[in-house]
């Protein structure tokens, strides 16, 4: 009898443990699926449920907050989801919260995500309709990707065409021409040399400028020497004065020219006789002839004088000095 009672005790424990495990399992599953405990309903409307199902999880800021109780088709473009939310979360969800349909992981089940929105708003009440936001689905992304691919194909076609045109063009031949390349290289070298020269020039210029600043050289003197500036000013004054005199002289010459012209016009004065009086010209010619004859006579007299014994010694001495000077000039040329 004792053994029987003991067996019964063991059996009782066995059954109890089994039942406790079963109840625990039901409780845990039920807790996850919001079967037990207090909860309340919220609603959200979507244009596309994206595979959302009854019983799908609802997350509030990433934390399990409830499940989808039902999905109802309101009209051809609107689906209303009734969400069963734990009472524990009720005090955190505000009316401006945004509801989106997301995915657990990359390819997991669909879930509803409630995201709090900034700003003050009253807390939700039983049966409130929350604002939903459409999230880009994989299908939409693929459609966009397809359009992008088409665009890329178009661009690559255009690029190909451009490359073909470039291959046919003179530019491409020019690029393949070695002579042109050498020419370009030579030009570049020259440009390089020019740049070196320009560099040296700029250095020189810089040096000149620095020297000029420090008062060296003519320009420096010009720019910095105050005494020179005074002299220059005085020279300029002199030049101005000379200019004024020249101007005055010009005026006098003009006056004289106009007087002469007046004399010529009025047939007065010496110039008028010189230019217009033919008799005066004849007398001048006769005078010139007489002077010429006189000069010839004088030359003959001088020649006769050379041969005179009184003056012959003097003329020989002149001849000797002349010969001596010629010899000295020749020796100097040879030395050079």
């Amino acid at each position: 009898m004792g053994n029987y009672a003991e067996n019964n005790m063991r059996l009782g424990i066995f059954v109890l443990v089994g039942l406790i495990v079963l109840i625990f399992a039901f409780y845990m599953v039920g807790k996850n699926k919001s079967i037990f405990g207090g909860n309340f309903e919220l609603k959200a409307r979507f244009s596309n449920s994206n595979g959302l199902m009854k019983g799908s999880n609802v997350l509030y800021s990433g934390i399990q907050a409830g499940t989808v109780k039902s999905l109802k088709l309101i009209n051809d473009t609107t689906i209303e989801a009734t969400l069963l939310i734990d009472n524990e979360v009720k005090s955190f969800i505000r009316k401006n919260a945004i509801v989106t349909i997301g995915t657990e992981g990359l390819m997991g089940n669909k879930v509803i995500q409630i995201t709090p929105f900034k700003g003050n708003s009253p807390l939700v009440k039983e049966g409130d309709l929350l604002e939903s936001k459409k999230v880009a689905s994989i299908d939409e992304m693929l459609q966009t990707l397809s359009r992008t691919n088409d665009n890329i194909a178009g661009i690559s076609d255009g690029l190909r065409q451009t490359v073909v045109e470039i291959n046919k063009s003179t530019l491409w031949k020019l690029l393949g021409d070695k002579a042109a390349a050498n020419g370009i290289e030579s030009t570049i070298n020259q440009m390089h040399q020019a740049s070196i020269n320009a560099n040296a020039f700029s250095k020189d210029l810089e040096m000149i400028l620095s020297e000029t600043k420090s008062g060296k050289g003519t320009a420096g003197l010009l720019l910095t020497d105050t005494a020179f500036a005074t002299q220059l000013r005085m020279a300029l004054v002199g030049i101005k004065s000379a200019g004024d005199h020249a101007n005055e002289l010009t005026l006098q010459l003009n006056q004289m020219a106009s007087d002469l012209k007046k004399d010529l016009d009025n047939s007065n004065g010496f110039l008028n006789f010189l230019v217009k009086d033919s008799l005066m010209i004849k007398k001048l010619n006769a005078t010139m002839d007489n002077i010429e004859k006189g000069t010839d006579g004088f030359n003959q007299n001088m020649e006769a004088l050379k041969h005179n014994f009184l003056f012959r010694g003097y003329f020989k001495k002149l001849e000797k000095e002349k010969e001596k000077r010629k010899t000295i000039d020749q020796s100097l040329r040879i030395d050079k």
Partner: peptide, 10 residues
């Protein structure tokens, strides 16, 4: 484990 389980499983 219980996250993956449902009453439909149990």
């Amino acid at each position: 484990v219980f996250q993956g389980l449902d009453l439909n499983d149990l």
